[in-house]
Design a binder for these strands. Sequence first.
DNA 1: TGCGGTACTCACCAAAAGGTAAGCAATGGG
DNA 2: CCCATTGCTTACCTTTTGGTGAGTACCGCA
Lengths: 113, 113
Amino acid sequence: MGAKRGPFSCGLDAAVAVVGGKWKPLILWELHDGARRFGELRRSLRGISEKMLIQQLRELEADGIVHREVYREVPPRVEYSLTEAGSSLNKALLPLGDWGEEHMDHITAVRGA
Amino acid sequence: MGAKRGPFSCGLDAAVAVVGGKWKPLILWELHDGARRFGELRRSLRGISEKMLIQQLRELEADGIVHREVYREVPPRVEYSLTEAGSSLNKALLPLGDWGEEHMDHITAVRGA
DNA sequence: TGCGGTACTCACCAAAAGGTAAGCAATGGG
DNA sequence: CCCATTGCTTACCTTTTGGTGAGTACCGCA
């Protein structure tokens, strides 16, 4: 799910390549109601390291999912927001999120954790 | 995305834990129109190794997504099919697949591959 | 003068995911 | 008897992913 992979076998494959990994769906979700700055995201996504956050944001930016806006201010400020493609991707993820909510108890029970 | 991970931060997180990885979405898709036997799946999913296929099927089975039916026959026959949960998961993946189809050209272009 | 906040960047490591190749049990056919 | 078929299992290895912790540049403030 890194930054490279070739021709996909189907649309689902392509979508998973873009949104796969431990943090990307959560990042997308954090951005669903507007722009957020780097520090805000870091604080919302508990447990993420700065390295991972930047890495994932950069990949999402390269894939045209998020937009990065730099404000040259006194403490630097950088805001991330969804592009049109990012917004539609987020919408396409909603049913999956709903499914997860409904089945979360079962999944959690079935796995040891 | 293996067989273990604890409490999830949201439904999307749980769903990704179940369906994440290189092959699981493709396996689900292969099963969307009925039961398939092991060998059929192996031939459909070009490039998958037997080890990976079984591993993923076992995890999906443990998560209650697929059902495994063994027929004690002369060359052994094993059929895999979607459970109710698996079927609804597959439906929840449809919008994501559509998104992927629409944006595949862009994604493929943006990445080297 | 040195401290804190912001947004990174880098080097290094550990864990997980994925791939390769071989072997195995059961049995029917040549 | 030997081979092929089917559905696995196992050992070993490489690649990818994720995590830790340190360091940097910029500035304002006390």
